[in-house]
Design a protein around this nucleic acid. Structure first.
Lengths: 189, 189
DNA sequence: GGGTGCATGTAATGGGTTACATGATTCT
DNA sequence: AGAATCATGTAACCCATTACATGCACCC
């Protein structure tokens, strides 16, 4: 048996619980409307992980009965859990290559008609144009709703990351579309 | 039993084999010095996958004996394999959220000293500053060595993606470092 | 003699999503 | 009547990396 805390998932859960006591269901919902653009967890990870965290004494479980609905299992950070989270936050980030299917398809793009790649890149452009707007909206909302939260600057940093990245990809997509059109024209001649 | 060709890995292999006949070992080496910055495969994936592709008739295996060294199993694309690759290249890219541990740690950054986050962001800055230079070098090399290859424009598009993305992250990291220093100063007062 | 490169492959393990199973309440 | 939301959990499955197993040749 391994000690809970090595992987990122349990530590992400500890982090979310540091915002306040929550159930597995709540955690999933919170992820989807906060860190969802750079982190995801499924129930199949959350529930077993919470159980293990509880067994390791890093979180505490309290069952609250509800009318009609199933019992709610609310978890909260223990002192040990808080310590573990802080330790993990200090560990240097290990960046691994994340696979990019768009680039893979583009790399072999010469094997198909230029219009195929154009379509892929156009979709990418649309996605990130929308994303930039979304990030701006999120930042605006955060600045309003969490104006006095000491965590606000950190949250804005992550949003800004997304914004800058998406803006860059918009730029790339536009450049790339032009290049693809150029290829298409020279091919037809 | 499933038909080979659904996942990205077998199709990536087909793509690489479209560049010429190769062994599993060659494929790994080629990945590492070409698409390695946005795609990776391990032997544990490559060898079994090639076997399945051969069973499905998408690639053809030829064993060439070598002096001293173990036999080399050279695979080449069949017509069916080429067709499968082209079909796959047309399928719209499904972008899923890729987890970002740096952002996760930054999101909970208020739970630790600002210097911790500063260190993470500084590492990110360094990584991407180096990356920009690497991408430039790769592009230069490609323009020289593959000047007449019709695939060159596509390869440059993928390199340019990396370049633009890394340059954007350098910008973000610099901004973020300033912000972290600001937080540090206001905290000390 | 020992490290590195060539060359193949399997088994163990890890980390994750999806589908399944259950069931009441509330909204349309 | 039916869909969505609340709520928890397990089992099956998929995909991927790492470790293991083997062994020769070449260079230092």
């Amino acid at each position: 048996m391994r000690i809970e805390g090595g992987g990122a998932t349990p530590n992400a859960l500890l982090g979310l619980l540091s915002l306040g006591p929550m159930s597995g269901y709540d955690i999933k919902a919170l992820i989807d409307r906060s860190i969802g653009y750079f982190w995801s967890e499924s129930y199949g990870q959350i529930y077993p992980s919470l159980k293990r965290l509880a067994a390791a004494g890093l979180v505490e479980k309290k069952t609250s009965r509800q009318k009609g609905r199933p019992d709610k299992h609310v978890y909260s950070l223990t002192a040990a859990g808080q310590a573990q989270l802080q330790e993990w936050l200090k560990v240097p980030v290990t960046e691994e290559v994340n696979r990019n299917e768009l680039l893979l398809k583009l790399f072999f793009g010469e094997r198909v008609a230029p219009s195929v790649c154009r379509e892929h890149v156009r979709a990418c452009l649309e996605t990130h144009e929308r994303a930039v707007k979304t990030y701006d909206a999120i930042a605006k909302g955060l600045r309003k709703d969490s104006a006095n939260d000491p965590q606000l600057p950190y949250w804005l940093m992550t949003v800004n990351f997304g914004r800058i990245r998406s803006a860059a990809l918009v730029k790339w997509a536009k450049e790339t579309l032009k290049e693809l059109e150029r290829i298409e024209k020279t091919q037809k001649k």
